[in-house]
């Protein structure tokens, strides 16, 4: 007897899975500053490098590179922090109370508080708990990350229809994936919808993160890198 070949899965999601960047390591700051300031310096350096990787990653999302350069910029300017937040959240899924920015940069609540990141800690852990409860899979994570960028509600798009098609393609991939995986989440016929309904909280969390880094910049506590500042500048 021959068994039918297992479906190879959704092409878009397979592409997203192979395009997932390797996790970065933090480069611990060695300046003679306080522990708290060193944590912030290390974090800002890591996030700046992560942002650089994120822009390279976006080009691998099926359909992204076909958009006009102006629209690519608009989507990234709108959605970069949401993508960064989702990345940190996904790394923190295995932890009960830490924010795992990198394997070697895990901050517990007390460390975040000492560094002035209490608000960010609370918001990121809230979102992390939500995805922990849902049992977010790697396939769902990569699709949500891409959708976040596609759905960044940028104004004045050059090719609004092309962006809509880009968004629809990702949505279709998510729906196709979920309709084929009802066995892994029995009774969750509405899983795709439930995942999409987490996006408002993701946006709210990213706004909190933007506020936090704008405040750090205003207080001039941490010198920020050029790329990070450029992206932040668009949010002020």
């Amino acid at each position: 007897l021959t068994h039918p070949a297992k479906p190879i899965g959704n092409k878009v999601i397979s592409q997203l899975l192979v395009s997932e960047p390797a996790p970065l390591s933090a480069i611990p700051d060695s300046s003679p500053s306080s522990t708290e300031l060193r944590s912030l310096l290390t974090l800002c350096d890591l996030l700046n490098r992560e942002l650089l990787v994120l822009i390279g990653w976006a080009k691998h999302i099926p359909g992204f590179s076909a958009l006009s350069l102006v629209d690519q910029m608009a989507l990234l300017q709108g959605g970069w922090m949401e993508v960064l937040v989702l990345s940190v959240v996904s790394r923190s899924l295995g932890s009960a109370d830490e924010l795992v920015f990198a394997d070697n940069l895990r901050l517990a609540e007390a460390q975040c508080r000492a560094a002035g990141l209490s608000d960010l800690y609370t918001a990121l852990r809230h979102l992390t708990r939500k995805y922990q409860q849902m049992g977010l899979s790697p396939e769902e994570l990569v699709t949500l990350k891409a959708m976040t960028l596609a759905n960044s509600d940028a104004a004045n798009l050059e090719g609004a229809e092309a962006v809509q098609r880009f968004r629809d393609g990702l949505h279709e991939a998510l729906q196709e994936h979920e309709s084929g995986h009802t066995h892994s989440h029995p009774g969750e016929l509405h899983r795709a919808g439930r995942l999409l309904m987490t996006l408002p909280l993701l946006r709210q969390t990213a706004a909190r993160a933007v506020d936090t880094f704008c405040r750090l910049h205003r207080e001039r506590r941490v010198p920020m890198h050029k790329l990070f500042l450029e992206m932040l500048d668009n949010k002020i």
């Binding site: 822009i55 790329l227 450029e230 992206m231």
Partner: peptide, 20 residues
């Protein structure tokens, strides 16, 4: 565009070295 020089450069050409 002028405001987002680094992003613009990164998207235009992935091989351009960027001063971070």
């Amino acid at each position: 565009k002028e405001k987002h020089k680094i992003l613009h450069r990164l998207l235009q050409n992935s091989t351009t070295p960027v001063d971070l």
